[in-house]
Design a protein around this nucleic acid. Sequence first.
DNA 1: GTTTGTCTTTGCGCTGGCGCAAGGAGGGAT
DNA 2: ATCCCTCCTTGCGCCAGCGCAAAGACAAAC
Lengths: 234, 234
Amino acid sequence: MKKEVQELIRQSSLFREVNPDIFDKVLETCVARSVEEDGFFFMQGDPATHAYVLVEGRVKMIQITPSGQQITMRIMTPGQTYGGIAMLNPRAGYPATAQAVEDSIAMAWDTSHLRELAGKDPSISLNTMQLMHGYISELQDRQQALVTERVEQRIARVLLKLAAQSGKRTDEGVLIDLPLTRQDVAEMSGTTLFTVSRTLNEWERSGLLKIGRERVVICSPHGLVSIADDLAER
Amino acid sequence: MKKEVQELIRQSSLFREVNPDIFDKVLETCVARSVEEDGFFFMQGDPATHAYVLVEGRVKMIQITPSGQQITMRIMTPGQTYGGIAMLNPRAGYPATAQAVEDSIAMAWDTSHLRELAGKDPSISLNTMQLMHGYISELQDRQQALVTERVEQRIARVLLKLAAQSGKRTDEGVLIDLPLTRQDVAEMSGTTLFTVSRTLNEWERSGLLKIGRERVVICSPHGLVSIADDLAER
DNA sequence: GTTTGTCTTTGCGCTGGCGCAAGGAGGGAT
DNA sequence: ATCCCTCCTTGCGCCAGCGCAAAGACAAAC
């Protein structure tokens, strides 16, 4: 295994600060898994047998409603953990589907190994709880946003968050370094692709950002922030 | 401490299946706390120093948005755990406010005791994770509902959930045994008290339920379910 | 170069649900 | 009995955002 990969795992939210001896075990017990663009690591409802740390690529977590509508929960970047629920109970189903947005590689640990490791080093349990806690806060924030904020604000937030985790400085501004369709943004902000399209175009007209096919460059992060926080004049 | 209270704690989601020896310690290290109607156990943002198991009364978890709007996350009944986040990190703030809906009594454990106990019996950590997991599912469901469902469905869901956890059979139907204002329902379903009022009245007219001041009796749970699942003709 | 498929824009109509204001109604307290 | 406070209802106006349809733009494949 490459040094960088080891380093990524060592700093992942699942295994950070694990005792070095145990960490060797961690490295021994994992399995690499690669999935190509649009492929799936697992589907919502599958038995939660493995936890993953993303090593390369981008993976999105999505949910499908009974009526077939899709909502995108989050987009993972290398170093992030998903499927951590496997820690708990292999019979439990994954709560969401993990789909690769680009060709991706992840390391995987199965439930039995995880539990064994957690028994040897309690910080793994603590890390998992920390992870879950972070996830809970995120969900709460989103829920709050959905109830209280208007669509415009929510779209602004989504873009800012994406920029924070996948942003890339360019001379035009901050490029969101992902193939990102209007539909994707709509799913993340809880609206429709039409509204997203209209909103982004309006923002482009006022110079806040530049858009292209599956491409967004944020020119004025400040402007977006003030929309997200509802400081903008209407 | 009364036997019933001990039993309640033994079966609480936080301490279930804890080793009997350790459980004695659990009982020793807790503190009772009572809060009268409308009082607070803790406020959002306070350092998370204690985890609670509700023993008597009803407690609601609420969040306040920056703009002052309130949203109600859930209503706890005796035996349920809240503030479990204290397990993790006493410096972290509580993510929500815990307010007594009626005069209430809860047992409390502080972070240091919790961690000590968790060190002695790993099932406490597992329970906490299980707890968090349940919470995550709940949040995800709600989020899904908020994005994809119409107000009517969401109100129906809220009522059904309340009935499930605080329902009481009467000759008229299932009474939701809580002082429940239209405002409360609105906060739980992410809408306004006006819309709730209108909707409930419409349902009363069609015989699905009976309403009074701070009072709801569900006459036809089936009818509500079919609205919640959108099987109803519009 | 042309085709094909996916992604995007835009116009138009529509409506669910919000906001507000004004009034009603129950239930404690004094 | 009366007052007061909180909770509830209802009418009316309004608009943000959705749904759909049709057409345009881009990229990749052939």
